[in-house]
Amino acid sequence: MTAGEVEAPADPATPPAEGDEIPRRARVLVAIVLVLLLVPGVIGFDLWPLTGWRLFSLSRDADQTRWVLLAVDAEGERDVVSLEELPLGYRHAEWPMSELPGAGRARRDDVCRALLGAVVEARPGTTELVIARDHARLVEVDGEWTTRHDYEPFHSCEPGEEGR
């Protein structure tokens, strides 16, 4: 061995013991799995089950805008309907609602009316359903954290009528 040379481990290409080879199809499967995991992971896009694993990756602060449902009763009183009050199929409705600004009137009506049925079942006195943006802010007052809400109506619908 000359200067500048170091002892190296054996090359991994050394064939394994007889009967202990990795099957070719296993190597192909592993290559596919790793490519499908690495490409969206590095770039950061979602084509479920391919995903960028962007879990809670955006920092939160005191301001948050969310899409909410406001149930209006016969007296005109508005009350926020938690999606937790609705059946399981409706719990993620915030995501379809968040896409409504780019959607046409028919799509807005479809989503509103789809939600209205479940809201009327949960709140039988509902005369109108309003899809709204909630511009919320966390505020600390005397050591206590409270949330201030500012609702911005976006679309509404009533039982038996087209959406507005």
Partner: peptide, 13 residues
């Protein structure tokens, strides 16, 4: 329970 999801709220993966 997912079977009851209205089509308007379904966004298939």
């Amino acid at each position: 329970q997912l079977a009851d999801t209205p089509p308007a709220l379904v966004d298939p993966v």
